[in-house]
Design a protein around this nucleic acid. Structure first.
Lengths: 233, 233
DNA sequence: ATAACTCATAAAATCCATTTTTTATGAGAT
DNA sequence: ATCTCATAAAAAATGGATTTTATGAGTTAT
């Protein structure tokens, strides 16, 4: 199915930061670059609105979902709640097989440099992927397909902020040690401890990004457009 | 925007039980009944997949999301967690204006007969609407747009089950008194108590539906189709 | 001179009619 | 009963028509 392929590619381009938050997604242009007809693009974009990655305003087309301070705060408040619940449940349910997968994901993450070797002022996209994978695997055993889906959606939204706002300078060593602590708590089955560490980790991630968003200098984000009525709001 | 209108109508028809869980949604047929072209319907259905009300399987088209025992249990487990959180926060944040709106919604609900006067063996659709409205208003002051959105989506999924499975006989009087207790706790600002009542209410709702789903006799639901690979799973 | 308004033009979004592919169906043969 | 294959039905994709919005030059008013 063509629209599924286009859906995946555009989704990837948004998460990669190739298509910036707030940016307009011109259908004809996307159709041309992906060598498909207009409706295929339209279909893909409609599905992306469901994933909360794209906004649709009638007669004004599609845009990449924009960043905002309020949303950043709300987003991380919900991540703390949802991921906390999912992680606790995962630790309770998880077996040896699951622990091993977490260990493996952590290893892959810890051995990937956080800063792009070729582009020292930006985070390494590969590291971001492994970070997200670590996150997904941690939650995988929570036992609830719906919870997993919601956590995945929140993490995806957060990825937009992280790719745009996370500075490379922010105490990498200290932050990586949080992953180590998290792993340790998981392997020892200490749910409470793990949730506390995760919460602190998320809070710190948010607090690093907030001032960057506030000053906004040099943040890769398309110019804000005038507020328009979005569908379904 | 035509597709938005069609989106709304189809959504309504699904929530009304006019289009049954598991039922195939033939694009050409929908296009004809709504006097629009195929692509418009397709666009609406794609957006409905984002709302988790419709499933899409490549080359097999769209179906109304089917009911299942596992999903029912999962769904209510998540409702208990997240509606609990949203309600508690709403009570903490809510001002007099909000309390008044809850009171009004409760009044509308309590004065609407739960059983359809013309169709005594089915629940009154108007009552179901007011019940959902009561629910939405209760959560409205939780302060988190994202939490509201997720709670709304969970409640919408639950509506499918309730319209299909909730018997008319299930101790209406007792269940309505739970709404009264809930209102009382909210107006007194007793968050803990309100959450306990809500939790019990949701558990009972689930437990009433489970056996009906298990035996499955006479449940309005389209015949199950062979399992197919769905997109995005 | 600047600001506000009109209106023609271009660009983009939305929708439709049609073609191409894929899947489902059922008669006839093995 | 199972398999093959022709046919019909439906999904998916295309190309293009229609409608709406954005843009900017020209005009008028302050």
């Amino acid at each position: 199915m063509l629209s599924t392929a286009v859906f995946d590619v555009i989704r990837e381009r948004i998460l990669n930061g190739e298509l910036l938050p707030g940016q307009k997604l011109k259908i004809s242009q996307l159709a041309e670059t992906h060598k498909v007809s207009l409706n295929v693009v339209r279909e893909a974009l409609n599905r992306l609105t469901g994933e909360q990655l794209v906004d649709l305003a009638p007669q004004q087309g599609f845009t990449v979902r924009a960043l905002s301070e309020d949303d950043l705060i709300d987003l991380f408040a919900q991540r703390i709640i949802f991921e906390g619940i999912a992680l606790r449940q995962s630790i309770i349910n998880g077996d040896l097989e699951w622990q091993s997968r977490v260990l493996a994901a952590h290893h892959r993450l810890s051995r990937t440099p956080a800063v792009d070797p070729e582009n020292p002022d930006r985070l390494n996209p590969e590291w971001l992927s492994r970070h997200e994978e670590f996150n997904v695997v941690m939650m995988a055993c929570c036992g609830s397909p719906r919870l997993i889906q919601m956590v995945r959606q929140l993490a995806e939204a957060a990825a937009l902020y992280q790719r745009a706002l996370l500075p490379t300078s922010a105490d990498r060593a200290e932050r990586n040690s949080e992953h180590d602590d998290l792993l340790e708590a998981i392997l020892e089955g200490e749910a409470d401890k793990a949730v506390v560490i995760l919460t602190r980790h998320l809070e710190q991630t948010r607090d690093v990004m907030l001032p960057v968003l506030r000053q906004g200098g040099g943040v890769p984000q398309a110019n804000k457009r005038a507020a328009v009525q979005l569908v379904g709001k």
